[in-house]
Simulated assay, not measured.
Amino acid sequence: MTSSSHAKFDPSRAREYTEQARIGLAGYDACHELSACILSAALAGARERRILVVGAGGTAGEITATARLEPNWTFVAVDPSEPMLALAQAAVEEAGIGERVTFVRDAVSALPAEPAFDAALMIGVLHHIPGDADKARLLEDIAGRLLPGGSLVLAGNYRAYDSEPLLQAAWANRWRLHGASEGEVEAKLARIKAGAVPPASEEAVADLLAASGFTAPERFFSSLFWGAWHTRRAT
């Protein structure tokens, strides 16, 4: 993340993240579990793998699910937000896998610029990066740290929110189902739309990946504005 994007995740927002993320994304846990399953299937054939987790702060659901499935894999979890990273560290310790996860409070660009990872996971990050140039730069930073042919599982919102009024109305109903008042619903949608810039379409996601050194993505999960894809660093 850039400094402007990660600054949104201050201590107060970090505290509410765990609950609100599961309301905002119908299928939150399923997406994280499927991401682990996809990555395990894509990297089958070797017991030990080293995984980069980008924007790891929060529930650490992608780490804990993957670690359960692959007990010999290790993780480097990168996030510039200290409050969000603290949440992830607590979740990892609670899961009993702390010795397998190295936490780095910084950007991906701060890591050594060498292909040191078998795969990467980036869930719920790209739509918080403000522009296409910065999005591409982050993806390039990831590609440069993957081994040739290494996998990337990418997940996040895509499509402009106001371009899909039916999906936006259904999204608002998610909060109503969980007890939010009309004022709270309006405030949540306004904050999301003010603070995130998703890629314009699934084709835009594919274009960003191609320009950053990745192969054509394969989508394996979808929920309203959210999508999840598997791709590889081009060899």
Rank of each mutant, 00 (worst) to 15 (best):
T2N: 07
S3I: 11
A7P: 06
F9M: 02
P11V: 11
S12Q: 03
E16G: 06
E16M: 15
Y17E: 00
E19T: 14
Q20G: 04
R22A: 14
I23L: 10
I23K: 08
G24A: 15
G24C: 12
A26D: 12
D29I: 09
D29Q: 12
D29F: 01
A30F: 09
A30I: 11
C31R: 04
L34K: 12
S35L: 03
S40K: 03
L43H: 00
R47E: 14
R49A: 05
R49I: 10
R49D: 09
R50M: 08
R50C: 04
I51H: 06
I51E: 08
V54E: 01
G57D: 01
I63W: 05
T64S: 08
A67R: 00
E70T: 13
P71Q: 14
P71D: 05
V76A: 00
V78S: 08
D79M: 05
S81H: 04
S81D: 08
E82C: 05
P83C: 10
L85R: 12
L87I: 05
V92E: 03
V92D: 05
V92Q: 04
G96T: 01
I97S: 05
E99R: 13
E99C: 07
F103S: 01
F103W: 09
D106A: 15
D106E: 14
D106M: 02
S109A: 15
S109M: 10
A110F: 10
A113L: 09
A113Q: 13
P115V: 10
F117V: 01
D118G: 11
L121P: 03
L121F: 07
L121Y: 02
I123P: 07
V125M: 09
H127M: 10
H128G: 04
H128I: 02
H128S: 06
G131E: 14
D134F: 11
D134A: 15
R137K: 06
D141M: 05
D141G: 10
G144Q: 13
R145E: 08
G149L: 10
S151D: 08
L152C: 09
A155I: 01
N157Q: 08
A160N: 12
A160V: 06
A160E: 10
S163R: 05
E164F: 12
E164D: 14
L167M: 05
A169I: 10
A169T: 14
A172G: 12
R174N: 05
R174A: 14
W175I: 02
R176M: 15
G179F: 08
G179K: 04
G179C: 09
A180V: 09
S181P: 11
S181E: 02
K188H: 12
L189E: 01
A190W: 04
I192R: 07
K193C: 02
K193H: 09
K193I: 00
K193G: 03
V197G: 00
A200I: 04
S201I: 00
S201E: 06
E203N: 06
V205R: 01
D207I: 08
L208G: 08
L209Q: 02
A210K: 15
A210S: 13
A210E: 13
G213T: 11
T215C: 07
T215H: 04
A216Y: 05
F220P: 02
F221C: 03
S222N: 12
S223P: 06
S223A: 15
L224R: 02
W226F: 15
W226P: 02
G227R: 02
G227M: 12
T235I: 15
